[in-house]
Amino acid sequence: MTEQGTTHVIEVTINGRLYSRTVEARQLLVHFLRDTLDLTGTHIGCDTGSCGACSIILNGKLVKSCMMLAPQADGAVIETVEGLANDGELNPLQESFSRNHGLQCGYCTPGMLMAGTYLLRENPNPTEEEIRRGIKGNICRCTGYVNIVRSIMDVAGGHGSEQADGIVGEEQR
């Protein structure tokens, strides 16, 4: 049993690096990432679990880090947007967002990238509808989603790009 208390020592592996810190039980996981560890790639939008800007992958599952407390992450393996690029080189999904104008202000982008990463792991060849449902928990105020869907589609396996063209047609109708 973890001892009952208002502070806890937690160990978390984030993007392959082990961190050990003393945290207050009341600290939201997103604040642990941003304020305690200075991993500010993960954003805070609504702070109510509605916008997805704070999405991370925890033990292989996409979650909203504003909806968890830091001690709940003790022992967890976490992936954040900082872990996507390799030595400053964008990964294929990030490249695709750049190429397809999948971002404008960029506020939602870390969450979108993590949602896209999770979606493509679970379902490497999603349909447009599956992509739209996969990013339903992530709000974008700028793009209208079309280019985000296209960005994800563009790196998906199989007939991804064919369908991406279909999206353009549909939006223009």
Partner: peptide, 10 residues
């Protein structure tokens, strides 16, 4: 957001 102080146990 900062929550009210709370105890946690697993």
């Amino acid at each position: 957001m900062l929550l009210k102080s709370v105890n946690y146990v697993r």
